[in-house]
Amino acid sequence: MRWGPFALRIGAVAMELLVAAILVLSILPLATGGLEINTPEGASAVSLQDGVLTVGFPLEVYNGGYFDIDDVKVSIALDANGTVLRSTSETMNVRSGMVNHLDPTFSFDLGDLEPAMLASMLFERSEMVLDIDVEGKYALGLVGANVSYQRTVDWEPLVSSLVISPGEPSWEENGTAIDLLVRYSFDASSLLQGMETGMELTLLG
């Protein structure tokens, strides 16, 4: 037996068999519907606090394959006329052979926006480009995949139908000052409901 050539040939065959086994074990379960993604009814949560818009998308992912799906990251970007709000979820792992409960959360700090853009988002209906990007690694990290989904979505203003009734102000003297009562009304997004509202008026004369 010539051990040198034999060892090299066995090594080559072993590597080929290893790759073949990884390919079969990774592709077959996924190709035969071994990956299921469910969204629990009404589980998504959107909140706005201290100028930070937080969106949560709880997911139930069943991985019927033989390998974990590692380093799964979801990025969401909103592009409005060149201004981008971007948020990336924490890295998640989808274990094989079980249902995984994932809770990717995305936070958008509206304070990062320019005042004019923030005002536009607050008061105006517009179109935005929503870009969702999902990436992860599979088959012991040997295969990486990236899925991007992009579409234009309608942005509903957080405050609409603002009506100020300056025609019938009532006022009363308060010492040396005058208290002026101005009635106003507006429709608010559910995100804003329950929050305090302030208004600043400047009288010019």
Partner: peptide, 25 residues
């Protein structure tokens, strides 16, 4: 609206390793 990218360079490199071993053979 969708774009799918798959990177399996590591798998290809493993197979190239096997080819290199065959060359060394």
């Amino acid at each position: 609206d969708m774009e799918l990218g798959i990177d399996y360079t590591a798998i290809v490199l493993l197979l190239l390793g096997a080819v290199a071993l065959r060359g060394a053979f």
